[in-house]
Design a protein around this nucleic acid. Structure first.
Lengths: 175, 175
DNA sequence: GGGAGATGATTAACATGTTAAGTGAATTCC
DNA sequence: GGAATTCACTTAACATGTTAATCATCTCCC
């Protein structure tokens, strides 16, 4: 139960002595992506917060400015939110009169959402600051490098798109 | 209030007609990072779930296998979790006897955490599948390209590290 | 045209993200 | 050496992530 104290082993021996060989934790791909995204979002969050918006609310309003109206399912795909999150947020945004919602013409199951005039006004108040931040990031990191990074991220997403979960064998083995 | 109907305008006119010029939403850096990370985590989540672990619980146990024991604050830094999240998760992991906790010797404020034998056993049960998945991702995307991507992500994080929020001027203006 | 299954959206339940406030212990500094 | 401050951690409160279940509609097919 009790494991070796730090002063009984040299730090370099630590990993090899006890562990299943694994990649250094902090260098795993999920952690790299998480830290990079957090570093970026940390720049934007204060400005959004000043305008009473969360990151996800901003994503939704932002997506709505690009279309006249859109069905909820399609909005979820575009804003990259799961249905339940989107349901809650739309309820709140509608209560704040930032969006409008109506039923689809030919299918009572579907709902169609659009941004309101008030929502557009809010977007226009936030957008300039967001652009300034984005420009600052681009300048710091380099426009070319940024484009290359985005291309590589898109390629990663694409290469994993058709990858059936490698855990499937394990699932079956434990059923 | 009412905005143009889709059949009253041509789709190409839509954006330029109403919007503050902004980057195409789906190509923004935060969205690219979010989608890429989700594509990766989608591969791992089923396996973790089979073992009753969330992604964050796994991160914590994983980090604990690399050290003998560690203070909570340092663990938060390594596992990239905020204090409140970590507090809750440690409480749960302790209740499941996957970790052990004690007070620091010279400072009653600090808590020191370590993984238990049961926790180690769980890690060793999950690790092989995780490695298989990681290997599959690496093969699909390319080992060299993956290394390059991680390097670029690290550089992005580093270049933004010292960047005071660009929203500061805005904050002061609205106070 | 009606019942079985599929579909779109919401609700439920639990875990985490995020900021602010609280608590107890150590440090500072006069 | 004690009040004020700082520090480590926890709680609180609210928003979102995640999976499962529910509900209403729609489609298909007999």
């Amino acid at each position: 139960m009790a494991r070796k104290k730090l002063d009984e082993i040299r730090p370099e021996d630590d990993a090899s002595a006890r562990r299943t060989p694994m990649r250094e934790f902090s260098r795993s791909l999920p952690m790299s992506l998480l830290r990079a995204r957090e570093a970026v979002m940390r720049q934007f969050r204060p400005s959004l917060r000043n305008h009473g918006l969360t990151e996800q609310q901003w994503r939704i309003l932002r997506a709505l400015t690009a279309v006249d109206e859109i069905e909820v399912t399609e909005l979820a795909r575009v804003a990259f939110l799961l249905g339940p999150s989107l349901s809650r947020i739309l309820r709140d945004l509608e209560a704040r009169a930032l969006i409008e919602r109506r039923a689809a013409e030919n299918d009572a199951r579907r709902a169609v959402v659009s941004i309101s005039a008030k929502g557009l006004k809010l977007i226009e108040a936030v957008a300039p600051t967001s652009e300034v931040i984005y420009a600052a990031i681009t300048k710091r990191y380099g426009a070319r490098k940024l484009a290359e990074l985005q291309e590589m991220l898109g390629a990663l997403e694409a290469s994993l798109a058709g990858m059936g979960s490698a855990a499937e064998a394990e699932v079956e083995a434990e059923d």
